[in-house]
Write a protein that binds this DNA or RNA. Structure first.
Lengths: 253, 253
DNA sequence: TTCCCACTTGTATCGGCGATAGCTCCTTCT
DNA sequence: AGAAGGAGCTATCGCCGATACAAGTGGGAA
């Protein structure tokens, strides 16, 4: 049931037949999404009725169900539209060539977005049954991209993938807790403190602009670690050759 | 509206008048809560119908509405009952005289509870309109009590109140993210890493902040650096084998 | 130009939901 | 015994999500 026959894939065939009127499907689509966002922000219980949405736009229910499949499809579309807003905001921020500064700005902007759009935020990050929305994953990818730039600068101590999985849930947790229980988490320094705690576990404490070659730095650190604490996961011969290679990588060009 | 005239305060007057039958009100109350929990765990969409709950217990709808006021009151009661389970679990753990160990156990048990009871967990920690449930606050108090013991032991660098506000949202964020998007946050070390990152910002640096195994950390960073910027100081075959070895070093013991 | 047909849209409706009005019955107090 | 008041059941209200059905519309074929 609910094949959610979205008309996005039939976009090239749009208006081929039938009467869609002077305004195309995607115009009605956008209007429905916008109306849903508005009613979602107004409704204190965070719930909307497809009837009310259709009435505000001036279309009947079958139109909505043709465009979005079912109510869940509508909410997915709203969540993805919210991601577009989120990404647009973030794009206006990330112009620096300092990826760490962008990371900080990204966290702060995430918190601001959540505070300004609590209903949309819940729609995006709260577990919803049978949701096919891609907003969550795309935001994680966005974060991972910034972290990859950090890794390229040599300031990341883990993989960008793991770092993103560390940062985003913490960010979401603080934002959702503040939405759910504003009175319990009203400490103004809370987001910053959480941010610093997580970032400290992911970024190297000291910026290393002095070292232009992060590969060499990593190799050097790996060698020293091996010298201090030997590993038993490699055979001695392997460890010896590994050390030789690391030494070669560390050698000046 | 919906005064939610709960009969808990009328407990001393129970069965004073009227026919409650051989089973008292609180028996029916508990049965309704239990049935709701069961149906909540079964339902894939996390939604329940008061009709179905009443039918399973064998009472009619007005009974439910007299006992809980409305559907939200029922869900609040379920959330508070879930808190009792949560607190009971935690009470079985916290017997140590090492408050820091209790703190770690508390985090881990929180994650386990969320994984075992995803529906209940969402009910407790996800923003719900007009919720009068006290579970959220009581769990925060529980955490703050443990942190006060840590402060008495002199291992806390902030106030217990702020520390609790730092820890709980991070804990919730990881748990909810794993419930909402299991595929995106499947890294098994994610909860522990988050825990260590947050605790490091709250406890005196007894525990290693970033990584318990510096050799593994160095190997991981070396690998990510190699993945980002390949080196020309090693032959491709050598680089491939180097990566394999680093991977072996990074593997959990 | 005319007919046809695929597609859209409005009407009306279905089944289910949360919530409640009003009658009946039972228990308890006087 | 009679009075009184609370509790439960039946029936129902209004709203919701979703859809069957028929009328309508416009582009393409003859």
């Amino acid at each position: 049931m609910s094949e959610r026959n979205l008309s996005a894939d039939s976009e090239p065939r749009r208006r081929r037949r039938g009467a869609t009127g002077p305004a195309g499907d995607e115009s009605v689509r956008a209007a429905l999404i916008e109306a849903t966002q508005r009613q979602l922000a107004s409704a204190p219980d965070g719930e909307i009725a497809t009837r009310a949405v259709c009435e505000e736009v001036g279309v009947t229910q079958p139109v909505l169900y043709r465009l979005f499949g079912d109510k869940n499809g509508l909410l997915d579309a709203v969540a993805d539209a919210a991601f577009e807003q989120y990404a647009r905001r973030k794009q206006e921020l990330e112009v620096t060539d300092d990826p760490v500064a962008d990371l900080y700005a990204g966290w702060n902007d995430h918190m601001a977005f959540a505070a300004e759009n609590p209903s949309l935020y819940q729609l995006m990050f709260t577990p919803r049954p049978h949701s096919a929305a891609t907003a969550f994953r795309r935001i994680l990818d966005l974060l991972e991209a910034t972290l990859t730039r950090c890794a390229a600068a040599g300031v990341l101590v883990t993989t960008p993938r793991l770092a993103a999985q560390l940062i985003l849930p913490a960010n979401i947790g603080v934002a959702l807790s503040r939405i759910a229980q504003p009175g319990l988490f009203d400490d103004p320094v809370l987001p910053d403190r959480t941010r610093d705690a997580i970032f400290a576990a992911v970024l190297t404490g000291a910026r290393v602009p002095s070292d232009p070659d992060p590969v060499r730095a990593a190799a050097r650190q790996m060698r020293s670690q091996l010298a201090i604490t030997s590993t038993d996961k490699l055979e001695p011969v392997e460890t010896a050759l590994l050390d030789r290679w690391l030494e070669r990588i560390d050698e000046p060009h």
